[in-house]
Structure formats: structure tokens, C-alpha cells
Design a protein around this nucleic acid. Structure first.
Length: 318
DNA sequence: CCAGCGCGTGACTTTACACA
DNA sequence: TGTGTAAAGTCACGCGCTGG
């Protein structure tokens, strides 16, 4: 490595732009990767730890849960994903990654299996839900002809008939689940829809074309959209939730404060040629990146359809 | 093809009202 | 004005079914 990587000579402004492009590309792949951001192994060397932290923070804000970053050499990528929901120990990382965190590999498999709704934190199940969850397969197996609603009715009656000590066991389990839920999601607040917002089926929808896909986020925006319209997670501030403002800038600034000296040694896996291309890309894309950084995601969706070589560069990873 | 409904119970929030 | 109580409404799970 006789020639220093260009990115290291590049000003902070430029690495920030590369970060924007990486984030942009990650957003486009998010739905295919189950809300996981995959970055080149040596991305830290190129954009700096603070920018990796920035992406990590953005993903966290986007999906509404804490995230964890670790190197996965099996796929040659730095992975940023939701912190395992049921792991008692948070594997906070984000700093110089040294070893493939084998301990969270199993957890990451769990994450792949969980149908994560990007922005929606599910409510903790109550005692009856846990009870039903446990008994449903058994009832289904012994009475395959029963419909799900009939099973619900049956289990409702069965629940009432259960002795108090049995119910107490399930309540205790529900209580523990709730406590764990509160630990995992300290900022979670149950926000039910209002009656006026409930009637989404049938005649209540005023639009001439009541296609589900074309639903406007505002029409049902309590805590459940996002599927196709990803909220603003760029540097711009959002007004979506006055109760829990995303205060992106402030948060990012606080996170960004970490030093990036530690990650500047190590192998560079962006080749010099790739970096040259990338930086050229940044320069030509600079304007759009700046727009992206200050606009909402609608703009990003528009950009998503345009050709973008960074995608090709990352295509193998995704 | 896919979002939404239905069906049970319990936890929780919001709203309305009464009272000090 | 502030506090307490009751009622109403919503959603957690699961999955077959319906309708756009």
C-alpha cells in the first residue's frame, strides 16, 4: 500500500457525502435485507467510525429499535442490524470491530426470522395471548377442523375455566415479558388509533382509488405505516412525532463525537480505483446528496429509480 | 396478490364526568 | 383548578377468509 487511500486525504465533507451515498444505497436495499445495512468490510477505513456510527444511528431511528454493528467475515461485510430482541445482553459495538462476534450470530439468525416491522414496536403480549399462543397449536392439532376464530372462542372458555394458580403462572410470565419489553424499548409508548381512524375498510375511505398501496401515510399514521413509505431519517429534522421528536441532528451530533483515530489502521479493502470512482461519483452526485440530506424520503424514492453505480459496487454484498 | 376482518382476554390510553 | 373514577376503544396473537 504505497499510495494512501484517497478517502483518507479527502476532507470530512467528502467522506460525509460518501456516507450519504452509502446510506442512500442501504435504504434502497433495506426491505430486501430485513432492515439490515450491509457495508464493505473496510468501510470504517474509508468513511471513518463516526460516519459508520451515523449510519448506525440512522438505522436505529428508522426502525425504532437499538441497533448493533459487527463484522461478518462470512459474507465480507460490516452488518448493522436491530439488537436481538430477546438477548439479555446488548452487544453494543460500533467501535473498532476486531472479531466476528460469534455470540450474536445465533441471535442474528433469530432476527432474520422475525418479521420485523420497520417502525413499529409490537405491544407486549398479555397473559391470555401467551396462553393462546401456547395452546393454539395443540388445539389445532387435536381439532384440525376448527377455524381460528373457533379456537379463539374455545380457548377463551378454557381460560376462564382454568384454576387460578394456572392463570397466575401466565400472568407472571406476561409480567416478565412486559418488563423485558420495557427494558428493550424504554421509549416505547402505546399509541392506539382513534375511532375516527379505525374505519379503514369499506366506505369510510374517501379516496376514489382505495388501493392499499396508495394509502397516504397521513391517513393511517399512528404507528404502523412505513412499509412502503420510509420516514425521514436523514439529517433533516422531522415533524412526524411531536411526542418523541427524532431530533436527528442533535442525536447524530452527540453520537458523532467519538474519535475516529482507532480505526484508521488496518487493511483497506476499497481499492484505490474503486475509491477514485467513488469520490468522482460523490463529486458528481454531490448536489443530489446534499438534497437528500435535507429532504424527506419522498425525494429519495425518486432518486431510487435513477442509475447509480454505487449500487453496482455494493451489489455483491447485497 | 395482499390488507383487513373476526374472535377471545387483558393491559393500557383517552375521554367524560363528578367532586373537593 | 386539580384529582379520582368509569366507560369506551385499541391492540397484542394467529390464520382462514373476504374483497378491492
Amino acid at each position: 500500500m504505497s499510495t494512501p487511500p484517497l478517502a483518507m486525504r479527502a476532507p470530512v465533507e467528502r467522506t460525509d457525502n460518501i456516507t450519504e451515498l452509502l446510506w442512500q444505497d442501504a435504504l434502497r436495499h433495506l426491505r430486501n435485507t430485513n432492515n439490515e445495512v450491509l457495508l464493505p468490510l473496510n468501510v470504517v477505513d474509508v468513511i471513518g467510525q463516526r460516519n459508520v456510527d451515523k449510519i448506525k444511528t440512522r438505522l436505529s431511528m428508522l426502525i425504532g429499535t437499538p441497533t448493533v454493528a459487527f463484522l461478518d467475515e462470512s459474507i465480507n461485510a460490516l452488518r448493522i442490524l436491530q439488537t436481538p430482541a430477546f438477548s439479555g445482553t446488548a452487544v453494543a459495538l460500533a467501535a473498532p470491530i476486531k472479531e466476528p462476534a460469534t455470540e450474536i450470530e445465533a441471535a442474528s439468525i433469530t432476527i432474520q426470522a422475525i418479521p420485523v416491522k420497520p417502525n413499529k414496536i409490537p405491544r407486549p403480549p398479555n397473559a391470555f395471548i401467551l396462553y393462546r399462543q401456547n395452546h393454539h397449536p395443540k388445539v389445532k392439532e387435536s381439532n384440525p377442523a376448527l377455524t381460528n376464530n373457533e379456537i379463539s372462542i374455545l380457548l377463551g372458555k378454557q381460560w376462564k375455566a382454568e384454576p387460578e394458580e394456572v392463570k397466575a403462572e401466565w400472568r407472571k410470565l406476561a409480567e416478565e415479558t412486559k418488563r423485558k419489553h420495557a427494558e428493550d424499548h424504554p421509549d416505547y409508548q402505546y399509541t392506539p388509533r382513534k375511532p375516527s381512524e379505525k374505519k379503514r375498510r369499506g366506505s369510510s375511505r374517501p379516496e376514489s382509488k382505495p388501493t392499499k398501496r396508495t394509502r397516504t401515510p397521513a391517513a393511517t399514521s399512528t404507528e404502523s405505516e412505513v412499509g412502503s413509505s420510509i420516514p425521514d431519517t436523514t439529517l433533516s429534522t422531522t415533524s412526524a412525532d411531536p411526542e418523541t421528536p427524532n431530533h436527528h441532528l442533535a442525536d447524530l451530533e452527540s453520537v458523532v463525537g467519538s474519535d475516529e483515530s482507532a480505526m484508521l489502521d488496518g487493511p483497506y479493502r476499497f481499492s484505490a480505483a474503486e475509491l477514485d470512482n467513488l469520490i468522482a461519483e460523490v463529486e458528481s452526485e454531490n448536489q443530489r446528496a446534499m438534497i437528500f440530506a435535507s429532504a424527506n424520503f419522498g425525494m429519495n424514492e425518486r432518486l431510487a429509480g435513477e442509475p447509480f453505480e454505487l449500487s453496482d459496487f455494493l451489489a455483491d454484498i447485497y
